[in-house]
Design a protein around this nucleic acid. Structure first.
Length: 274
DNA sequence: CGGGCGGCCTGGAGGC
DNA sequence: TGCCTCCAGGCCGCCC
């Protein structure tokens, strides 16, 4: 369930180990990810090129290579990157593997296969349909209460679904949407278009706060998440409502409730979120 | 067109 | 212990 903080954690941990290294080759063991892995694209844009930078857009990891190449990785639900020595036994569910110019490998492991591995020309990114429709980055300067207030006018979507709609706001999944709404004291079912400017200011601040804190703690590991070195996150110890149904609210002592919204679990405190 | 929901997929948890 | 069912959820496509 990697959301923005988990992808950002992987990016930061991976960066110093990868920049300046060349990708010499790859293997595809199973092309059946969210979209079929296209060998041609990997060959064309990745092989023989050195890593120049690693960026993140939404929940996508963008490994920029020489001569405008870009390796695009999405972790889906259970995706994970493993950076290790090439002689280390290959784990189950490693579907794609990249050989580096030393004795290491970058492996993409994903039991549920909801993830994505692709490559394209960097300059094509913004025109790519996966990226063209993406909404605001919540840690960018454009993510302001005013902007969200304006963009949410007329929307009858529950505010939780609004926050998780990647054409509006990117990187926020079930965990951080629930946590941010709790911090801001906003009920998850409240129609997005009916939140006033002040409530949006506070919600925007809460989204930033919870994402930033989660990044500082190396992300949240409830089940699957591990960074490229295998380390777990620590933010699960700081969750206030997510996965805590029936437990006591840290603020008011009431009982945390779980409801299903758009078919998925949502956690909130009925006392604090009206 | 906005919004809801099912399908994809497998491991792990819980029930009996 | 073992088998079965259900649940987790990011994203897309389909439907109303």
């Amino acid at each position: 369930m990697p959301e923005l903080p988990e992808v950002e954690t992987v990016r930061r941990k991976l960066l110093p180990h990868l920049v300046g290294h060349r990708i010499d080759g790859f293997e595809i063991y199973d092309h059946r990810l969210r979209y079929p892995v296209r060998s041609r694209n990997l060959q064309r844009w990745v092989v023989g090129r050195s890593v120049e930078d690693i960026q993140r857009r939404s929940k996508y990891l963008l490994i920029h290579l020489e001569k405008n190449g870009c390796l695009v990785i999405h972790f889906g639900m259970s995706g994970r990157i493993i950076l290790c020595a090439a002689d280390q036994p290959r784990e189950d569910h490693v579907h794609v593997l990249f050989r580096l110019d030393d004795t290491r490998e970058l492996r993409f492991r994903d039991p549920r296969r909801f993830g994505l591995v692709d490559a394209l020309e960097s300059s094509e990114l913004e025109r790519d349909r996966r990226f063209a429709t993406l909404g605001l980055e919540p840690l960018s300067d454009e993510f302001t209460g005013r902007e969200l207030y304006d963009r949410s006018r007329g929307s009858r979507k529950p505010v939780k679904n609004f926050l998780m709609d990647s054409t509006r706001v990117v990187g926020v999944g079930h965990i951080y949407a629930s946590e941010a709404l709790f911090l801001a004291g906003v009920h998850p079912k409240r129609a997005a278009g009916r939140l006033g400017p002040g409530r949006w200011e506070s919600l925007v601040a809460s989204v930033r706060q919870v994402l930033t804190a989660a990044i500082e703690r190396g992300g949240t590991t409830l089940r699957d998440f591990h960074d490229s070195s295998g380390a777990k996150g620590e933010f699960q110890d700081h969750l206030r409502v997510y996965d805590r149904s029936g437990e006591e609210c840290v603020r008011c002592g009431g009982r945390i409730r779980r409801v299903v919204l758009a078919g998925r679990s949502t956690y909130y405190c009925p006392g604090c979120q009206r």
